[in-house]
Design a protein around this nucleic acid. Structure first.
Lengths: 154, 154
DNA sequence: CGATGGTTTCAGTGCCCGCCGAAACAGGCG
DNA sequence: CGCCTGTTTCGGCGGGCACTGAAACCATCG
């Protein structure tokens, strides 16, 4: 007997969340992202997320606040007694990637500072120099690549 | 009165370690890397590192083992009663960066798997599609950039 | 002005992980 | 075969963080 589509989807969400947990996003935050990427309809209330993902209302609240702050999730409030709706803001996913690239290239500032401290002692600077060269190259290449990004993925 | 060079160096090592701690490398591991990049002479024993970095022998051992495993540090044993010497292996720093880039592009496998689960429902796949497009583009561009890396930074 | 449904806050819990340091271990030396 | 030095192992400690759930909060509706 075959596994239902929703079962496979929730397994996928779990893998998705596991990956981003390694990148520093809380497990529940990653689940919210994965779920909001594929759910139908596209918008969900905090209560629905809590039920679907089997997470406490507190965790959902904390993580939604975080994700809204990052711009990855959009909150839509409605008048009356109606619950706010949350949906993915996939357009901002690029920001997430850009921050990752920045984290990489920013090491260059460290290596350069180190090189300045080593000035006047080329012998001793050799090891750091090799590392600095690598990051200097990265810091010139990566931003250029990012700029060439096609509009279809913005 | 001005601050001594060694004092500024240890402050730099601390910033260096702090940066890599955010990337998942233990604080002491980062200190070892920073220290081995600039120390003179270039090789140190475990006992010396323990003293210089004010870390326990156990922590030094654990972290050296980890760094040697990563290829970032090389262990040189000497015959007789002599202690083993450790030195930085700056040539392998590229591997560290390459793994970071891989972590980024590997998200594509996740988004592709998700897209397959969404097949036959283009409406529902739209959000995930935008994210998948971004990573697909990344996965084609980044490896190409890495290949163009000049030999000076290898 | 209660009552109601939804959301956020917050104190408490458990878990994980980096670190310590003493004890065990390894392997040359005398 | 002990001894000695350097290294690793391992139990334990402490800090930090994700998560929980109940209580407080907020805004609307009757």
């Amino acid at each position: 007997m075959s596994v239902g589509r929703e079962t496979r989807l929730s397994a996928w969400i779990e893998r998705f969340a596991a990956h981003f947990e390694r990148e520093g996003i809380p497990l529940i935050g990653g689940r919210i992202l994965g779920y909001l990427l594929v759910c139908q309809p596209t918008e969900r209330t905090a209560a629905e997320l809590s039920q679907e993902l089997e997470a406490s209302s507190g965790s959902i609240s904390t993580n939604l606040k975080f994700l809204v702050g990052e711009g990855l999730v959009t909150k839509r409030t409605r008048r009356g007694r109606q619950a706010a709706q949350y949906r993915i803001n996939e357009k901002r996913w690029g920001d997430l990637v850009a921050r990752k690239l920045d984290a990489l290239t920013s090491v260059r500032e460290l290596t350069e500072a180190g090189m300045r401290l080593m000035s006047g002692d080329p012998e001793r600077a050799m090891r750091l120099r090799a590392v600095d060269d690598l990051y200097t190259w990265l810091a010139t290449e990566l931003p250029a690549v990012w700029e060439r990004r096609p509009s279809s993925s913005r």
